[in-house]
Simulated assay, not measured.
Amino acid sequence: MDVGVDGKILLITGATQGVGEAIALEAARSGADGVMVSGRNARRGADVAAELEELGAEAGFVEAALEDSEAPAAIFQATLDRFGRVDVVINAAALTDRGSVADADPDFFDRMFAVNTRAPMLLMQELIRHLRERKAPGAIVNILSVNVHGGTPDLAVYAASKAALAILTKNAAFTHRFDRIRANGILLGWADTPGERDMQANKLGHGEEWLAKAEAGMPWGRMIKPEDVARLAIFLASDASIPMTGALIDQQQDYVLGVRD
């Protein structure tokens, strides 16, 4: 089975580190003609774009803060300006800040939903309009979370924002199936990313030893890595996964069927 994105133009958010960066690099290795990456860090964005070019894909970077409601349209237009078309959108950017039902304030709630739900929905909207105008097939891949099954107390707002995006993913898949626009989501479990390392070691105060302790308790002796997510995301973006659409795939080894030992 040929799992590749040969000839396709991909737009990937949150691609200056972690999961988004790994997906962008896997796309370049998998034959993408062009990859537009977006994120907050201009230096990292330039570095990732340069690495993509070395791998043989034309690349660009758009600096953007997804809290801004105008950012998704600007990112999409920049991709059109650079490449002339877009075939795949992969929404990997997200905030994972902690907030419970009892403690989250309105500003926190609005910021989480702006980045985790509104921005990817608007990018989905831009791609759908563009593909329908072109009468062309395409794919959406949303990086979600196993926390859509309920979530731990301090991840209530995060879980809710991802659950809302999960519904939008399934709705878009159903609504646009005859447009040949596929939408799938990855319900990502606990992963070893730069953001999670900072969260656990610094913001939550668990120190640098947290990773070794966490991995020791995993069935495979390690946490999910960005490269694991990248391979699945590229499969979903590729023609190899046709006609699969509306799927929400748990990518997790510890939290299965909504329960934990």
Rank of each mutant, 00 (worst) to 15 (best):
R129N: 11
T152G: 15
I90P: 04
V35L: 06
M36W: 03
D154W: 06
E126Y: 04
Y158H: 12
E133C: 02
A114V: 08
V157F: 10
D97K: 00
V48T: 14
L127Y: 08
A42Y: 07
G138K: 00
L127W: 10
A163T: 12
D105A: 11
E58K: 13
P106A: 13
E63L: 04
F108K: 00
V88Q: 02
G99E: 06
G60R: 04
D154N: 09
M36S: 12
V146L: 08
A46E: 15
A32Q: 09
F61C: 06
P120Q: 00
V115E: 04
E58R: 15
N91T: 13
A92P: 13
A160F: 03
D105Y: 14
I167K: 00
T169S: 12
Q125P: 05
F61Q: 01
V157S: 06
E63N: 05
G31Q: 09
V86S: 05
A156V: 06
I140A: 07
A74S: 14
N41P: 09
G31L: 11
D68W: 03
L168D: 00
R44S: 14
L80C: 13
V141T: 06
R111S: 15
D68I: 05
L123R: 02
N41C: 08
I128S: 09
A27F: 12
V101T: 14
Q125M: 10
